[in-house]
Amino acid sequence: MPRCMSNWDEAATHLKNAQRILVIGCSGSGKSTLSRQLSEQFGLPHLAMDREFFWLPGWRLRPRQEMLALISKAAAGERWIMDGTSPKTLPLRLPRTHVVIWMRPPRWVSLRGVLWRWFARWKKTRPDMADDCPEKIDLDFLRYIWNFERRDAVEIEAQLAGHANLPVLVLKSHAETALLLAKIRRGD
């Protein structure tokens, strides 16, 4: 298993010194919001995987080989914060990552986050999505969220296990995220 950070001081120190931060977790868990905040705090370029790699305008999926080439090129960069889970692309990103933040709230929190995002951005495209991709929800997407811990989290844990020295911070609630951000902003 990777080295999970055990306290806020250790996590804040690692994040302040990191040049490449990977934020992963279920849809609706708060990955993009946290990534934007950390990007502003640390001056790191924010790479939203949905916007930068996966989607083309009009909800067209980017061809796989092109997507993988873009992810590899971005991961080779010196400084970034990248938000997006995609377990199959972790082998491209984990070797270059200094710190992983895994947003891991209960599934009802992620479901609420997705429903709130859909309601708040009805017929609009969110900033971390490709142009002309208005917010949408369907039954398959809701199933993905419901089954994330049982299916995707297992694969993520297996991928992280191959990087035993990589610091991983697991955030299980929005309150923990707020505590971390407050500690970083205070600088203690």
Rank of each mutant, 00 (worst) to 15 (best):
M82F: 03
T85E: 05
I81N: 07
W146E: 10
M129N: 04
P106Q: 14
V114Y: 06
K136F: 13
L92Q: 13
A76C: 10
D131G: 06
Y144W: 15
P91G: 13
P2K: 02
P105A: 10
K31C: 05
A120Q: 15
R150N: 07
Q65E: 15
Q41V: 01
E10L: 06
V109K: 09
L160R: 10
T89S: 15
L171V: 10
G113N: 07
V99K: 10
A18V: 04
H163M: 09
E40K: 02
R60F: 01
L180S: 10
S39N: 01
L179R: 14
P95K: 11
E155C: 14
R143E: 13
N17R: 12
D83I: 08
R36K: 06
Q159A: 15
I81S: 11
L142V: 14
S35I: 00
H14M: 06
A12D: 06
W116A: 12
G43Q: 04
W118Q: 11
A175D: 13
A130C: 04
A69Y: 03
A178F: 05
P134G: 09
R112C: 11
S35V: 02
R60M: 01
R79E: 13
S39M: 00
T125L: 05
H98W: 03
I156H: 10
E155G: 07
R185E: 12
G58N: 04
G84F: 06
L111T: 11
K124V: 01
D83Y: 09
G25M: 05
R126L: 04
G30P: 05
P45D: 06
K88E: 14
N147H: 14
G58M: 03
T177E: 14
G162E: 12
K136W: 08
H14Q: 13
K136Y: 10
S72V: 04
T125M: 08
V23Y: 04
L169D: 00
S173K: 07
S86K: 00
G113T: 07
V23F: 03
W102V: 08
R151T: 15
K124W: 03
M129T: 11
E66K: 09
I156N: 02
M49R: 01
W146C: 13
R117D: 11
L38P: 03
F53M: 08
V109R: 03
I24R: 01
W116Q: 14
V168I: 13
A164K: 15
D83L: 06
A76T: 08
L94W: 08
A158W: 07
M129G: 00
F54W: 12
D131N: 10
L166A: 10
W118C: 14
A48E: 12
W8H: 00
C26R: 03
V114P: 08
W80G: 09
S27P: 08
D9S: 00
V170Q: 12
V154L: 14
V154I: 13
R96Q: 15
A76Q: 15
F54A: 07
Q37D: 08
L22M: 08
E52D: 10
M49N: 00
Q65Y: 00
P167V: 12
A69W: 04
A161S: 15
V109F: 09
V100D: 09
D138Y: 05
M82W: 02
P106I: 01
G25N: 04
F141H: 07
R20C: 08
D128I: 02
P167A: 11
R51I: 02
K172E: 14
